[in-house]
């Protein structure tokens, strides 16, 4: 007779690491888009870490990219999130740069880092969907 063993399978988690750039509207986009992925689009499959915790935190935080396949989301081409993640934690699986993405879609950046208007919410959706697409790619691997 066939014996079956029940094994609990935890869902695979993907780490999302936005730059959160406080100075730039594109940095604000990274925050809102990443929260949308974490809260609405892929809540069961995504986790995040505050990028500066790689310096302020300890060994556990620095092992983040070893524990999870990661996607970095940068507001500008300085790519602080990708560079710091690579340097302090591990190589990200995917890297998204908001300025490149907006250019590709012919969309203007928000006018303010402080407040997003209704039109910017559509841009948040676009960025969030792009992140979610990369999450799906990792989950399918």
């Amino acid at each position: 007779m066939l014996e079956l063993e029940l094994v609990e399978i935890s869902p695979k988690k993907v780490g999302i690491i936005p730059c959160n750039g406080e100075e730039l509207p594109e940095g604000t986009l990274t925050r809102f888009a990443c929260r949308k992925v974490l809260d609405k689009l892929k809540p069961s499959n995504t986790v995040t870490i505050c990028l500066p915790l790689f310096i302020a935190g300890g060994k556990e935080e620095r092992e983040f990219a070893q524990k999870f396949p990661t996607i970095t989301v940068d507001g500008c081409d300085k790519q602080c999130s990708r560079i710091n993640t690579e340097r302090l934690s591990g190589k990200p699986r995917h890297s998204i740069v908001i300025t490149d993405l907006l250019k590709e879609h012919g969309i203007n950046a928000p006018g303010s880092a402080r407040t997003l208007v209704d039109m910017d919410r559509q841009t948040v959706d676009l960025v969030a969907k792009e992140i979610a697409k990369k999450v799906d790619q990792i989950l399918a691997e």
């Binding site: 730059c19 750039g21 406080e22 100075e23 990028l51 790689f54």
Partner: peptide
């Protein structure tokens, strides 16, 4: 942002914390 835009516009600014991490 309230300090920069409303309360002390000529005296306060900020920069991205992550830029310090790459030594910008």
């Amino acid at each position: 942002y309230a300090l920069m835009d409303d309360l002390c516009p000529d005296r306060v600014t900020t920069t991205c914390l992550a830029k310090l991490m790459i030594g910008d």
